[in-house]
């Protein structure tokens, strides 16, 4: 079998120190993106298990795979999860989700949980689009902007390049940083055009790392123009698959002259949307309880970490 260079690592994780049987509230967020599907299971508002997998041809199946992988080895069944929120591109097509919430809201909420309440700007660089989001100290969105024009300059584009150049997707970033001198960015970030442009450069004798560098800086530049529209404020964080590509992140930081907070060891930044979804799920349970008990639930509660 030929090596599939684009293939990134699919994996799952669970917190062995926690016991879901003792939890009061078990919720999940399932984020079905165009390229990857993520499921995060939280118990009493803390991350308990997650799974990161490739999105297949249909959303319901991808969502099921994602949640099955997260539950794997925990003894949990879907019935034990009290509330599932669906998010991402395939969010309206997740049969077991009680509610669909936009990835804009979920990424902001998730970033607030992962990095803390000082986060003001979230850049989500996903498989097929990219979003700039601003939020307040509660992780509530104050402004957003989506790149809707072209599906390029994104995770999927990077995968195409990995395959084209026979470089594994995980090495693309570091390899692109080995160039002595930064080449001119490729003029096009549209996958199809960038691909033929890259082939042209290879034929001219450009080494791989230089081609990747040119593509990465084109991608970074494109995103910076987006961010400038809404204005970047610190703390700045990057979520989504491309956040793991050091080559794009470094070039982006250089152009913005702002550093992104480093990813934490505890949370994979690709999970922000799923985590945000699981937190909203918890808030939704609390909302219905509050309504029953007090008849009046303040919207503010949704953004608080009530434990």
């Amino acid at each position: 079998m030929t090596k599939e260079f684009w293939r990134w690592k699919e994996y799952n994780w669970k917190d062995e120190s926690k016991d879901w049987k003792k939890a009061k509230i078990i919720t999940a967020g399932v984020d079905v993106g165009s390229v990857s599907s993520k499921a995060a299971i939280m118990i009493d508002g803390e991350l308990y298990a997650f799974n990161l997998t490739r999105t297949g041809s249909d959303s319901p199946k991808s969502a099921q795979n994602a949640i099955d992988g997260a539950m794997d080895g925990t003894g949990l069944k879907l019935d034990n999860i009290q509330y599932v929120v669906g998010t991402g591109y395939g969010r309206v097509n997740i049969p077991f989700a009680k509610k669909a919430i936009t990835e804009i809201a979920c990424h902001a909420r998730g970033a607030n949980h992962i990095w803390g309440k000082t986060v003001r700007t979230v850049l989500d660089m996903g498989g097929q689009d990219c979003k700039a989001i601003k939020c307040d100290e509660r992780g509530k969105v104050t402004a957003f902007l989506m790149n809707d024009k072209c599906a390029a300059g994104t995770g999927r584009g990077m995968e195409v390049f990995a395959d084209l150049l026979s470089v594994s997707i995980e090495e693309m970033g570091d390899l692109s940083l080995t160039v002595d001198q930064e080449p001119e960015p490729v003029s096009s970030t549209c996958v199809v055009f960038a691909k033929s442009e890259a082939l042209g450069l290879l034929r001219q004798g450009w080494p791989k790392e230089k081609v990747i560098a040119a593509y990465s800086s084109a991608m970074a530049h494109r995103v910076v123009t987006l961010l400038e529209k809404i204005g970047v404020e610190k703390d700045f964080v990057i979520t989504g698959g491309i956040s793991k590509n050091s080559g794009v992140v470094k070039r982006l930081e250089n152009e913005l002259k702002i550093k992104a907070l480093p990813g934490s060891d505890k949370f994979d930044p690709q999970l922000a949307g799923a985590i945000g979804g699981a937190l909203f799920a918890k808030a939704l349970i609390e909302k219905s309880k509050y309504k029953l008990e007090f008849g009046n639930w303040r919207l503010e509660n949704a953004y608080k970490n009530i434990s």
């Binding site: 969105v141 104050t142 402004a143 957003f144 902007l145 989506m146 790149n147 809707d148 024009k149 123009t225 987006l226 529209k229 809404i230």
Partner: peptide, 16 residues
């Protein structure tokens, strides 16, 4: 919240 819809390209900024 300010929700920006649209895009930016070579010919300008097009957002509602």
């Amino acid at each position: 919240m300010l929700a920006h819809y649209g895009y930016k390209d070579g010919s300008g900024d097009f957002f509602i």
